[in-house]
């Protein structure tokens, strides 16, 4: 879990950070900011799950900041930490989870966590990206495949959404319908290397090869799955597994 805290008064920020660290201990990475532009820049590349925001800051209003953060991450949990009552209605308008009077305390944080608008689900270690180019990430870093054919094999199985794919069908994808003896041996080696490669990351059970091949998508977060479930965070922008010709058919279905 990633948490941001911002206050232009350093003493107040220090106090807020102390309370946050005491509450969350090792369960969250908590980043302090006293400058709005610095916080926004950081949020672009590392959006937080929860943001604790001061409201009255020189040259910047915390409500305006919240609106900008929401545009980057609509399911951000916002908690305002302020000395004033009069911003509560505006805080509600930017979908704040809580409105806390200064000073922040462990007890107030505990109450705020019970009111989060967007409960934080435990993210899975594996993220499969299909929109744009296909890629697989393990704990935030892209998985390195030993060959492009291994990656394409996995991509096809994701496209099939966990359904069992026969060896012949897979050969059709990888070798353009060449299912000769030589290609069958090659196919087996690709599957074996893919399995070993994933096992080195500790995720060998993602790829299953018995009576055919399939992936276990229940072990991953996947943008395609989320989009199909209606999660508005993931939007189809016209590109799907762009490296692979087999994906053209599916892309056509999304565009309808």
């Amino acid at each position: 879990m990633l948490i941001y805290a911002i206050d232009d008064e350093k003493a107040v920020l220090h106090y807020t950070m102390k309370a946050l660290k005491e509450y969350f201990k090792e369960e969250a990475e908590i980043l302090p900011f006293s400058d709005v532009d610095e916080m926004l820049a950081s949020f672009q590349t590392r959006p937080a799950d929860i943001a604790f925001l001061d409201i009255e800051m020189p040259g910047y209003n915390g409500i305006e900041l919240a609106a900008k953060l929401n545009r980057i991450k609509p399911d951000l949990n916002l908690v305002f930490v302020t000395g004033y009552d009069q911003y509560a209605l505006e805080a509600f308008d930017v979908y704040a989870s809580d409105y806390m009077k200064k000073p922040c305390s462990v007890e107030k944080i505990e109450k705020a966590m019970q009111k989060l608008r967007y409960p934080i689900a435990k993210e899975k270690d594996i993220f499969v990206k299909t929109f744009g180019n296909f890629d697989v990430f393990y704990k935030g870093s892209p998985i390195r495949f030993r060959s492009e054919l291994e990656k394409e094999m996995l991509a096809y199985l994701v496209d099939r959404e966990g359904a069992l794919v026969s060896r012949q069908e897979m050969a059709g994808i990888l070798f353009e319908d060449d299912f000769s003896r030589a290609k069958q041996v090659h196919l087996s080696k690709i599957a074996e290397r893919l399995s070993k490669g994933l096992a080195e990351y500790g995720i060998g059970n993602l790829f299953l090869s018995e009576n055919g091949y399939r992936v276990d998508l229940s072990l991953c977060d996947c943008d395609l799955t989320e989009w199909k479930m209606g999660n508005p965070i993931y939007r189809f922008t016209g590109e799907y597994m762009e490296q692979y010709s087999f994906a053209e058919y599916r892309k056509g279905m999304f565009e309808k």
Partner: peptide, 16 residues
């Protein structure tokens, strides 16, 4: 009363 909105958060309400 606009200032009543603070209670919105204290009570865990959904809207005002």
């Amino acid at each position: 009363n606009k200032n009543k909105a603070v209670e919105l958060f204290e009570l865990g309400l959904s809207g005002f």
